[in-house]
Nucleic acid binder design. Structure first.
Lengths: 226, 226
DNA sequence: GATGATTTGTACGTATGTATA
DNA sequence: ATATACATACGTACAAATCAT
């Protein structure tokens, strides 16, 4: 058997830096619009500018970073309109995913999804937002996999990553946790009925409801502009 | 007024190389699986390896190139299953686009779309595949724009670019031109009725039919594997 | 508006890992 | 299996453009 050193970590510096920056952006450590000085990042990660540059350019392709030629990169500053577009696209893609998943999921996948959904009940009762958030992620991830379309699943994952920066405090407020689970429940019922179209409609509504936190984002953003 | 030099061309070498490689891959000049030697490409484009490297990494993110750490890049070799996934995703996204477009398009966009559709009639009669191909592109592009969702539109464009390598000979065969226009016609009727759901179903069917050339791809690929 | 400082963009050199004889 | 050749990964150097004063 071969000795493998730290299988999880990528061997390439640019990949490690890309992951680190992705996390930093997703969790809000790097705010939108923050300047990404190449030398500064190189120093922080103890590498030269070369892998940092490559990481930044890759992130620019996936949309997390905005590169202005000869003016450096910044964390992608998305306008409220763009956030709306992102959320809408996410809602539509999730809807497509759940429709395909309804028609294609294996019994194993179905039971797995059901188990996750049942576990969320406890999290909701305890008001355990972090726990719910993790299960929510699994819920959607399981649906992605059940599409049996690896490319579509990957697209969905990427969009989710990109929207993560905006979803942070989304579940924290008021009734959202309870409503979220109710909406999941509707999706589950549609899946159980084998009605992919209905599952898609429910999922789309669910995602758009989840985006209602977006209103506050727009509100705060507009306030900031004044 | 400021003097601008060649607005169309990107100023950065990595961008120009990325575009050149994208075209080369899309039009089939670079076949799937072809090795992408950095020095060789650098020589060909008269630059150093640095911008070539950056271009390759960026293309890897968008999926056109596959990078194996320390083993260089190759033009993404997609399995028949992956091609199917790509086509299916394309079909679903186009369906979403046309549904949103149906509900949101302006009268101007509607008449523009109609004009393009009418122009295709002549191309079909003449059997002018290249002309039809151009109009077909415009038809879909107009729908993307009519979604009034820039992000979704961009996703659709990227997918289209990526699938271009496989669509090359698609329209050349037999009845496909006539059928394609008939399917567009069904989409147009659904749009005229304001029935976005129906337009989406028609578009999905249209795209999946268009992917039937895919069967031959799979067939030839499996033959190759023997 | 001009000048100096800073930062990006590109070229090049070196070491390490991979492929091949 | 070992050694050789070679391509990649990363670091460094310099030129050009941007910005700050």
């Amino acid at each position: 058997m071969m000795i493998t050193e730290e299988q999880g970590e990528p061997t390439l510096l640019s990949d490690r830096i890309r992951n680190a920056l992705t996390d930093a952006i997703a969790c809000g450590d790097l705010a939108a619009g923050a300047a990404l000085d190449e030398q500064q990042l190189a120093d922080r990660y103890g590498v030269s500018r070369t892998p940092v540059r490559e990481a930044l350019r890759q992130l620019a392709v996936s949309g997390l970073v905005e590169m202005r030629p000869r003016r450096g990169g910044i964390v992608a500053k998305v306008t409220p309109e763009q956030v709306m577009d992102l959320f809408e696209t996410m809602a539509e893609i999730e809807a497509v995913c759940v429709r395909l998943a309804t028609y294609r999921m294996t019994p194993l996948e179905r039971s797995h999804l059901l188990r996750i959904h049942e576990e969320t009940a406890a999290a909701v009762q305890c008001g355990d937002v972090d726990s719910y958030d993790g299960l929510n992620r699994q819920f959607h991830e399981t649906i992605y996999e059940a599409t049996h379309n690896d490319f579509l699943a990957e697209q969905a994952r990427q969009l989710r990553t990109r929207l993560n920066a905006f979803r942070r405090t989304q579940l924290r407020q008021g009734q959202r946790l309870i409503r979220s689970r109710e909406e999941h429940d509707e999706v589950m019922r549609a899946i159980a009925q084998g009605d992919g179209e209905k599952a898609a409609r429910c999922m789309r509504a669910h995602m758009l409801n989840a985006a209602s936190a977006l209103d506050r984002y727009i509100a705060s953003h507009e306030a900031e502009a004044c």
